[in-house]
Design a protein around this nucleic acid. Sequence first.
DNA 1: GAATAGATTGTCT
DNA 2: GACAATCTATTCT
Length: 237
Amino acid sequence: MTLERMTADVVLDPARRVDPTFFARPVVSLARALVGTLLIHRSDAGITAGRIVETEAYRGPRDLAAHSRGGLRTQRTEAMFGGAGTVYMFLLYGTSWAFNIVAGEIGEPHAVLVRALEPLVGLELMSERRRANTMLRRPNASMEAREPGPRAIRASAKNAWSLTNGPGKLCQAMGLDRTHYGATLGGPNLYLAHGTVGRIGRSPRINIDYAGDWAQKPWRFVELGNPWLSVKPRIRR
DNA sequence: GAATAGATTGTCT
DNA sequence: GACAATCTATTCT
C-alpha cells in the first residue's frame, strides 16, 4: 500500500503534535504505536521531518539486547532511566549515532530505537548532511578533492532512499547527535506529530546475536512494503 | 545481489 | 584491550 505523501503544511501543523502522555505505555506497545508518527527537528540549518516506518523495543534490565541489561546504569545509559519521552542517543562503532525514545517510568530503562524514516520535509538539507558525512568517511579522501563515491552517486541518481533508511543514516539526515542526549521530546525544536500508517508487521530485532533467546523476540515493527525500511524484514505472524 | 573488510571512538571488563 | 542496537566500498557471484 502506498500512502499519499504528506505536504510540509500537514506535517508541521501544530494541531498534530503528540502530547507527552503518548509515550507512557509499555515499551513494545510504544514501538508499535510510533510507526506512522512524524518526527520533526528544527535546527539553525533548517527544518527536517520524516515519518517513522521502522522501530525496535529494548526492555532492560531483563532484555539482554538492551544497553541497560542487568540494570547497567552508567553515564552512557543514564538517559534510558529518565522516564517516558526522554531522548536516548548513543554512538556505536565509533561512526554512527542512534536515536531512541524512552518508554518506561522514571528508573525503568525501556526505550524504542527508531531505525528508519520516510523523508518528508527538508530533503535538500538531509542530502547535504548525508553527502558531507559520507565524503568525510571515505578513506584517503584529501581535504581538497573530495568527490561523491560510486555508491552515493548511484543512490542519489536513483532516489532518496539512502537518506534515512537506517538508524545511523536518519540521525545524520535529521541532524541528531550527542547534543540531543537526555533531551525531552516535545519541545519547540524536537517533537513528534500524529501521522498515518499502513499495515504493520513485526520481526526479530537486527544485529543482536549476542543476546541469546532475547534475539528471537519479535520486537521490531515495520510498515509493510515501505521502501525506506533498513533491512527487508522476515515477517512472522 | 551477497559476502566481507575497514573505519573509528566511547564504554566497560 | 575488546567490542558495539552501523555504514560504506570492494570483491566476489
